[in-house]
Design a protein around this nucleic acid. Structure first.
Lengths: 316, 316
DNA sequence: TTGAAAGCGCTAACAG
DNA sequence: CTGTTAGCGCTTTCAA
């Protein structure tokens, strides 16, 4: 009755509501959860390398906030709350699995920063409903959302060609992560379609510094380059600095395109033209998929791929 | 017995352990929580302005990740997990309060980005154990941790004077937030002690763009300035850009000191000299204080103030 | 010392 | 349709 299901005398209903309001009654969720076998919580687990004492650098990345934001926007209206967890070591991974098995949360949303993360497989094995942020490096029967990295990279290639750039290079991410591979391959393929068979590249680690250094290397080997696609905005920011340092104007001498449309893209000058990674929408979709699995345990894994978009600003 | 409290025949203990290991038994926390009246969860609430649909911009700030990191490092070894919540509107604040009263979490860690946030007072009224990240703008009998903003600003002033800078200005944060006020006042006082009675200042909003604009205004009114203290690193990054744009070298023409020692401080060139805000340590201390209140309900509010430190890099 | 039993606050299945 | 009752899985108290 307290849930307003049965039809009761309206006067009584009102009286009860009054009582509730004055008493400040609130149902106890532990008790409810004990019988319904649902907690109204999902684990948001950040899984990466590194050790447990110093949680992964993903926290320093504005990307993390966007994921959280998207997840919350979907979960909150449904009365579900995310519980934050890290899984950087075997011990903490085991803890996460046991937490989920204890029924402390109804499922897991997993953002993995490391290529060969064993957690997805462990979650599947434990029979825990789970959804990943990106396609797992090794095939695992699990749901995930992802962005079409190749298509995004192709957008960048098209733009560079449209601008008439002919000596184009790229700074890619760590090649053991699938997303970095896909962005590089997508860019190379698209440039090939435009008649550029060979595209020099330099590998970075998705950080500001690594972007700066990769740009230095590129400039070393190809001082005449006039366009560069950088696999994320943070590295692009670093690349911008290296270009300025070497007297190149952007976009005059060299056009630069980033990837992500993160806050870094507007925290540099010139403002960065970039490929929008719809992180918030993707995170919300993770929530949706997870609830599907929670409510329908047998459900087969699904993947949802999002389309990126070119965001034109000043750098290209 | 399963908790290993009573002394049982070791052989039996071993047998049970075996059984547990093979069966994969895990205790159910909802059931335990029902009787112990403890959940093993605390709410991490981000409270700010803005509307619920687009969670606060604090998420885009690397500061958020540092807070989370510090909190987790303290909570995890104790088997406690943070539940993420936003409170941007009256409705969501009410939801947070009711969540806590439902006993869904043992207490709240509150990071407020807005000056006159009513949530701290509401939490106190509801009798919920809570700890704030910074001193509340309006006095509320509640525990909090903070950094000595005045002392940090004084460190910056001392450094600028030590460098022989004589035409010094400052970019402060929004003056309705106590921390911004304290940094400004601390800087002015310290400069006064060094014989500089008047320090021009320009107000920003703690964002990159606002820092850039504030620097423009300062340069407009005081083209000969040779040192500037900026109330956070993000604004300092923007200020750096404005200075470069106006042909000033850093630190040659103008020395720049930021505040926070956030990731922005190393994602700009020259590397930013700044005041270290020990966010992670403070966040961990919040956890400690909260557990104290949880275990000892009557406890009087406490505050813990941390000392900032000057981090010397290239900009000053 | 060890085992049995009584709830914690709720939901769901059950009679009335 | 409405009121009653039996657990959910644990901890804690109380007998044995």
């Amino acid at each position: 009755m307290i849930n307003g299901i049965r039809n009761v005398d309206p006067a009584i209903q009102e009286a009860v509501r009054q009582a509730i309001a004055t008493t400040g009654y609130v149902p106890n969720r532990a008790a409810r959860s004990l019988v319904t076998r649902r907690t109204g919580a999902v684990a948001l687990v950040l899984s990466g390398a590194g050790d447990d004492s110093a949680p992964s650098p993903i926290l320093a990345d504005p990307f993390f906030g966007r994921v959280v934001s998207g997840i919350i926007s979907f979960l909150r209206p449904r009365g579900i709350h995310p519980v934050l967890m890290f899984a950087e070591s075997d011990a903490s991974r085991a803890e996460v699995v046991s937490y989920l098995r204890q029924g402390d949360a109804d499922g897991a949303l997993l953002v993995s920063t490391h290529a060969a993360d064993p957690l997805p497989a462990q979650l599947v094995e434990a029979g825990v409903p789970a959804v990943l942020f990106a396609r797992p490096a090794r095939p695992v029967p699990i749901s995930y959302v992802d962005v079409d990295h190749r298509a995004g990279a192709a957008l960048a290639a098209d733009r560079l060609v449209e601008l008439g750039r002919r000596r184009v290079a790229t700074i890619c991410g760590p090649l053991d992560v699938p997303a970095a591979q896909a962005r590089l391959a997508g860019f190379q393929d698209a440039m090939a379609r435009h008649g550029h068979a060979f595209v020099p590249y330099s590998e970075g680690g998705f950080t500001y510094d690594s972007g700066e250094q990769a740009m230095e290397r590129l400039l070393d080997g190809h001082p005449d380059l006039d366009g560069v696609f950088v696999a994320n905005d943070l590295m692009a920011q670093g690349a911008l600095h290296a270009l300025r340092h070497h007297g190149r104007s952007v976009p005059g001498d060299v056009a630069v395109i980033g990837f992500d449309d993160s806050s870094a893209a507007t925290a540099c000058r010139p403002l960065l033209t970039t490929i929008r990674h719809p992180v918030e929408d993707m995170a919300a979709e993770m929530g949706r998929l997870l609830l599907e699995h929670v409510h329908e345990p047998g459900r087969a894994p699904t993947s949802v791929i999002f389309e990126p978009a070119l965001i034109m600003r000043a750098s290209a």
